[in-house]
């Protein structure tokens, strides 16, 4: 598969969206709404669930199912209140010392009037700052599109994994082609040059693990359930200071 084929696969209709991972991997999911500042962004879903009896704060970007749902969820492009909701739930997880698991799938943070008025940049910046010292383990899984800062806002984590056909990029291949070459049709070249595939992420040290995909995603859920359970209990056993030092070093190397 070429890099651009991966882009198409990551965006494909029918590919499981964020909530599918929460529902298929965890038990007892209870969704919690709102950022306590402005509103509730349906593009980011968060709450508490259990994994093998361990309470976990779970977060995902959700692109939506049918057309109506997709519109309601802004096609998975979060507004500032989405990031602020995620931060609220992460701080809550820290307070109760439960781990955080994020499923990342967004073409990017929303670029709209309201998003700018309400501080899209500030919201992402605050997430990054707070996540870098959050005193509880965080694991992020890139499950579809990892669109730039809007994705990173939920992926400054102790472990970052990526699905075989997911992508992670600083800019969309379309954006890159039109800015660099003034030619949106060179999107295939851009996808290639940007190095956005799961293999690229592994070789650049951006992710620790690639999760193989199967047609029905049953194996994906199964693998994630087992790996998350094992990794979270490993991370929970670390003294906080060591956890934070390792998280610092993880990103310091880039």
């Amino acid at each position: 598969m070429s890099a651009y084929d991966k882009v198409l696969a990551a965006r494909a209709k029918g590919r499981p969206t964020g909530l599918s991972y929460i529902e298929n991997i965890f038990e007892d999911f209870i969704e919690l709404h709102g950022d306590r500042r402005y509103g509730d962004d349906p593009a980011i879903v968060g709450g508490i669930a259990t994994l093998e009896g361990q309470p976990v704060t779970v977060l995902c970007m959700e692109k939506g199912g049918d057309t109506r749902d997709r519109v309601r969820r802004n096609f998975g492009s979060p507004n500032p209140e989405g990031y602020r909701k995620s931060l609220r739930l992460m701080k809550q997880a820290e307070k109760f010392r439960r781990p955080v698991v994020c499923f990342v799938d967004t073409s990017g943070a929303f670029c709209g009037l309201g998003a700018e008025e309400r501080g899209q940049g500030q919201a992402i910046a605050e997430n990054l700052l707070e996540l870098s010292s959050l005193k509880t383990p965080v694991v992020s899984v890139l499950v579809g599109e990892g669109g730039s800062g809007g994705a990173l806002a939920l992926a400054l984590a102790d472990r970052v994994w990526i699905l075989e056909n997911a992508i992670y990029s600083v800019i969309s291949p379309e954006g890159c082609a039109s800015i660099l070459w003034k030619d949106a049709k060179r999107v295939r070249d851009a996808a290639e040059c940007l190095k956005i595939t799961a293999e690229d992420m592994k070789s650049l040290g951006v992710v620790e693990e690639i999760i193989p995909e199967d047609k029905e995603f049953e194996t994906v859920y199964q693998t994630l359930r087992e790996d998350l359970a094992a990794t979270l209990s490993q991370l929970m056993a670390l003294p906080t200071e060591e956890l934070l030092r390792k998280r610092y070093e993880r990103f310091r190397k880039f």
Binding site: L152, I171, Y248
Partner: peptide, 21 residues
Amino acid sequence: ARMQEGILSLMQMAKTSAALG
């Protein structure tokens, strides 16, 4: 971010934020 450095430029947002923190 400098797109010619791809994902590595995105990682600078995380790295600088952590040092600032």
